[in-house]
Design a protein around this nucleic acid. Sequence first.
DNA 1: AAATAATGTTAATCTAGTTTAACATTTATT
DNA 2: AATAAATGTTAAACTAGATTAACATTATTT
Lengths: 194, 194
Amino acid sequence: MNAQPLLNYINKQISLTEGEESFLISKVNHRKYLKGQYIVQQGDICKHECFIISGCTKTFYVDDSGQEHIVMFAIEDWWTSDMGSYITQTPADFNVQCLENTELIQFSYNDKEELYIEIPKLERFFRKIIEKALAASQKRIIKNFSLPAKERYLNFKELYPTIEQRIPQYMVASYLGITKEFLSKIKSQLILEQ
Amino acid sequence: MNAQPLLNYINKQISLTEGEESFLISKVNHRKYLKGQYIVQQGDICKHECFIISGCTKTFYVDDSGQEHIVMFAIEDWWTSDMGSYITQTPADFNVQCLENTELIQFSYNDKEELYIEIPKLERFFRKIIEKALAASQKRIIKNFSLPAKERYLNFKELYPTIEQRIPQYMVASYLGITKEFLSKIKSQLILEQ
DNA sequence: AAATAATGTTAATCTAGTTTAACATTTATT
DNA sequence: AATAAATGTTAAACTAGATTAACATTATTT
């Protein structure tokens, strides 16, 4: 199993002994998904939190009128799951689908809790990751409300500098909460401006 | 110090020994704020995470054009802070202001980390709280995008059933991301409908 | 009880973003 | 290379929600 990217990621913040590393690895699964496959489906219970080794995913929600709303993208070294479903083990609100062939490492709920008990500094490490994710999520809320679509698009390009090249534009529009037609208009305006 | 509401809140999920309870209490401050006072100000570094014993707060952000955007409210048994500022100890994006006289218990960053080291089950407890907050924040993002203002208002009333009576309506509008005039219109429509 | 400040309502006008629809371009499939 | 499928663009008509402004109601202060 190629767990090295995960270990590198963790060792940037804390240091694990060899024993801890192998215990960690014994508790996770390595998996490959093809482009288009679903990691989580709306209505299912989300069994895993996933660390992406390579590839790209989108997390989205289909509303009652059938419209798709993208909540986030994730690429190498990012985490993805439906947090609400994962922590309460209730049906997911979101879908997580692969936009490219994707290789990742899965943490099941129970194995992760065991890991935390065995290696407390891992619990600290994950707590801090979630704190950061919460702070980012709150910032996104205010940006959605206080900024017009053009500014949100510019922010998106800053936050996800490499992703825009990897995904179709209509998904960017969905992430921004606007139609693809309007994003097209914004982009042509931006070209005229400079 | 009246820490009983905090202990009750914690003991709903985990059980602390008397020694742990008194260690916990030795690490926190009890404080009272008057209506109108600020717990955190945009630009300052957020020093504490706060558990509310009584009262009510709003967390808001003032944008470049001077407009106020409310991110959340908090009442008895809820937590409040600027998470982004607190965890990174960098200037806050948000203000937290008391809408009523408010009594709360403050956790400083360093004392909280000490608590976690001394009482690991508290770290687990807080991790789970943050996971829930993150899940709620993600749900709010999709609801903002996928629902029209009228639905968001109905959702607000479900999420904060007691708060609507305690705060002025223009703050509800700010939380919903609409003007007070438009909320007024929505409310009169809802009255006509039933 | 007045007077003032804070909050809430209504209606007209305006605008950011949607919808629809037709067409253009790029990518994948045979 | 040809065709089909997926993605992107443009423009006209439309709508949810903003803005402005005048007025109504409710709290607060004197």
